[in-house]
């Protein structure tokens, strides 16, 4: 496989890891908040499925990143690099710590303590920001990017991460409970969308800087793809809010289809996020070679 193939595979693993992590956290979050009084609703399997995906994607990302760090030419190079990556790099220690936090959160969730679980998992979710550009840069721009990344990741994790649990809940709950749940999820989703838009705008200004880059660079193309997918997600959310939610419970099948489509689009957005984090932002392209 050539270099591009390895980068794509690493991006896929990172995106998968994000999706699994978000899904596990989102399930805990929804259980701890909007579904708190619905203790009988068993969402543990869904959370464990998210955890398994996070582990699988995380393991792939860890191995491929170690290979990239070491410029490995063979399996033995990768194996030799693993303890160094695990113990002496921010990437390794943070990834393993985040997975440890998620495991702890899962055990608490399994024991029936969704609030503690969601809080701990949230720490693991936002810690991802320190593996991005903002976490690496110093000064005002670094602080600003890091702040934006924390908010961006938190909003994405709450909104997209909660979708699978929302789907399962809306499928299982009795008819009289559907409308209150859908109505209470709407403002939460809107707050997340607003946060994602504002923080994406800041990231655009700091990392892309000029609109032409959306069409002339790989980073810009992926950012544009994310934007289109995000617009489609908002369109589906608007349909849910203004068309399907008011006519519940009769519209339950349509609402479920729409939320399922949102979850699939959300996965595509996270895979695109995994890819964009591997690419060089246009704002610093002129620095290359110094």
């Amino acid at each position: 496989m050539d270099v591009t193939g390895w980068v794509l595979l690493r991006a896929f693993c990172r995106g998968l890891h994000l999706a699994g992590f978000f899904s596990a956290f989102g399930t805990m979050f929804l259980s701890a908040t909007l579904l708190h009084k619905r203790g009988a609703l068993r969402l543990r399997r869904l959370a464990w499925a998210g955890f398994a995906v996070a582990c699988l994607g995380g393991a792939g990302w860890f191995l491929l990143q170690a290979a990239d760090f070491a410029a490995a030419q063979s399996i033995s190079d990768v194996i030799g690099a693993l303890p160094i990556v695990a113990g002496q790099t921010r990437f390794g220690t943070l990834l393993l710590t985040r997975m440890g936090l998620l495991l702890l959160a899962m055990l608490l969730f399994q024991r029936g303590w969704p609030r503690s679980a969601a809080l701990i998992a949230f720490g693991g979710v936002v810690a991802e920001a320190w593996l991005g550009h903002g976490g690496a840069m110093t000064g005002f721009v670094g602080t600003m990017l890091l702040f934006c990344a924390v908010l961006h990741i938190a909003a994405a994790a709450i909104w997209l991460g909660a979708l699978p649990a929302l789907y399962v809940a809306l499928k299982r709950l009795p008819e009289d409970a559907l409308l209150p749940l859908a109505q209470s999820f709407s403002p939460l989703g809107m707050a997340c969308v607003g946060t994602l838009l504002v923080t994406a705008m800041f990231q655009f200004i700091l990392l892309i800087t000029y609109p032409q880059a959306l069409f002339t660079t790989a980073y810009g193309a992926v950012a544009l793809t994310k934007l289109v997918l995000f617009a489609a997600l908002i369109a589906l959310a608007v349909l849910n809010r203004f068309r399907f939610t008011p006519s519940l419970p009769a519209s339950r099948p349509a609402l479920l289809r729409n939320i399922g489509a949102e979850a699939v689009l959300g996965l595509a957005v996270l895979l695109a996020a995994g890819l964009i984090l591997q690419l060089e932002p246009p704002a610093m392209a002129d620095m290359a070679g110094m």
């Binding site: 550009h133 721009v141 600003m144 990017l145 704002a283 610093m284 620095m287 110094m290």
Partner: peptide, 11 residues
């Protein structure tokens, strides 16, 4: 923010 250059890679 517009007045600051962003690097996002180690140069």
């Amino acid at each position: 923010a517009c007045g600051f250059p962003a690097f996002a890679h180690a140069f």
